[in-house]
């Protein structure tokens, strides 16, 4: 079990959260807190860099959906970048690959 690590930074497109470790029921509150702490402005895009993420359970899925719906209320967007294959498989099963923009890597996600 590797702990969840959330590293915020800024890119030309908007805020970026680098997620690494395992995202599950036990630590999903940390992600919710990090999301609440973001000041997302209209027209900007929050990028979740998931390259270091090893696991994401349904609580994590819920956090992604909450992030998307919060972004939409301020007319901003959320994109996922560098999603590992096992997590992408889950996203496909639940259909989230259709409602999130999924970038192959962080460079293409943060290119203005």
């Amino acid at each position: 079990m590797s702990p969840l690590k959330i590293t915020p930074r800024d890119a030309a497109t908007g805020p970026v959260l680098e997620l690494s470790g395992e995202l599950d029921y036990a630590n999903v509150a940390e992600l919710h807190q990090a999301l609440d702490g973001l000041a997302l402005r209209p027209g900007r895009c929050l990028v979740l860099d998931m390259s270091g993420l090893e696991f994401c359970d349904s609580s994590g899925i819920t956090a992604l959906i909450a992030a998307r719906s919060n972004a939409q209320t301020v007319r901003a967007d959320v994109a996922l970048a560098a999603v590992p294959p096992n997590i992408l498989r889950v996203l496909r099963i639940v259909g989230l690959d259709q409602i999130f923009t999924v970038h192959p890597d962080i460079e293409s996600a943060t290119r203005p």
Binding site: I65, S69, R92, I93, V94, G95, L96, Q98, I99
Partner: peptide, 29 residues
Amino acid sequence: GGHPPAIVLRADGTADFLPTPGGLLVGIL
């Protein structure tokens, strides 16, 4: 919607997924 595909097991000893791709989680949109 948002669910792993069902599996059909045949009398002849084969089995396969019954794909329902693209079905979204129910209730989020």
